[in-house]
Simulated assay, not measured.
Amino acid sequence: MSEKRPEDLSVEELRRLLLDKRRVTRHDRLERFKRTGRVISLAVETPEAPEDELDPGRIVETLEGEMAFQPIPKDPRRVFMDRLLLGIEILAVLGLIGIGLTFFNTMRTLNNEVAASIQQPTAQATALITAVVLPSGHTPPNAEGGAQPNEAEIPEHLRPLVQNIANIPVPTSSPAQGIRIQIPAIGIDAPIVQGDGWEQLKKGVGQHIGTPNPGENGNIVLSAHNDIFGEIFRELDKLQPGDVIIVYTNQRQYTYVITGTQVVEPTRVEVMAPTSNPSVTLISCYPYLIDNQRIVVSAVLQNP
């Protein structure tokens, strides 16, 4: 049979000719490599791709007559879309992470708010500012009739309340209560008793009933006389800011640092008001042997 001219060949015949030429060229190249030692023969030959897997659009012939594949260039629009989709996916993942973190923080905040609303505040002793005058009031010992409770300094319309206040029960003793006070700057070392009425102040320094224990938040109000019953608080006016007051309990001692001193009228009961921090207030009649005012010394707990 005479050979057909190239223009007379069908597409399938041209395709087969290209495959045959590719096989021959590859075989010749492998033989040449074997002779020069550039390739090692393998026991199992790699199977050739089926004929129908050949992509004619990718087969080109090099200048040396060998067959090679030429990659098809990528469409720029396709590349752009791929990158755009990748960016959208990354943003979506970051958005989900952000939503998760926001949800976590919101739940934590809600839990903290609920816990805070459920938590009960710590009970603190509250000073009973029902006193109509400051404690330790009395007539001077050199006055006619001697020293005795000075009812004259109580406003007349408040005198009916005095008896009710005097009947406030003394709290049950506990290890946390103050039992002794020392003020080194003026040589005071005296016992503390609960209550600041006439009879209690005969025994030492009286703690106003309802004020907190040493070391607790609030204002401990301690009173004593300056010219009778041992004159315990006679020299309060010599105290200076920075001097210390040491209050003892059966468990430990507490040191308070003096912040100031003032002289007030007997009705200035607001100096006994509760405070938000641990503090102590000392009260005594003033001046010495006159006793128509009060001297008030304020101090705060050192290193609370």
Rank of each mutant, 00 (worst) to 15 (best):
R32C: 03
G100R: 05
V205L: 04
S284Q: 04
E89V: 01
P50W: 06
H157R: 10
L86E: 14
R22E: 14
N219H: 03
R26Y: 10
D75R: 11
F104I: 00
S136T: 09
S10C: 05
I40M: 12
G260D: 09
Q120P: 02
P266I: 04
Q182M: 10
N226C: 09
N167R: 15
G206K: 03
T275N: 08
G65E: 09
N292E: 08
R32S: 15
A176D: 14
F80A: 15
V247M: 10
R159F: 06
L289I: 12
L85D: 13
H225I: 07
N277D: 12
L94V: 03
I165D: 09
F233Q: 06
N217S: 14
E265G: 08
S174D: 06
E53C: 07
S298N: 12
A273L: 02
P169K: 08
E3H: 11
Q124L: 12
Q163G: 09
T255D: 01
D55S: 09
R22H: 12
Y256M: 04
R268A: 15
E12H: 11
P140V: 04
N219L: 05
R58L: 13
G57Y: 08
V170C: 03
S223F: 06
N277A: 14
V221D: 03
V221N: 13
V93K: 02
L110Y: 09
N111H: 11
R26S: 15
E61N: 02
L110D: 13
I183D: 08
F69D: 11
P241Q: 03
I129Y: 04
A49M: 13
E61K: 15
L54D: 11
Y256H: 03
A92K: 10
G210C: 06
A166W: 02
S117K: 08
L161E: 14
L54P: 00
G100C: 01
A116K: 12
I295C: 00
R180P: 05
H27D: 13
A273E: 09
G206H: 03
K74Y: 04
G260K: 10
V264R: 00
L110R: 14
V247L: 12
M272Q: 14
V24P: 00
V162D: 07
T211P: 04
I40F: 09
S298K: 03
E270I: 07
N292W: 05
A92V: 04
P274L: 06
A299H: 10
R108K: 09
Q148T: 13
R294N: 15
K202W: 00
D28S: 11
N112F: 05
L91E: 04
P287L: 00
E231T: 06
I209P: 01
N150H: 08
D75V: 05
E45H: 13
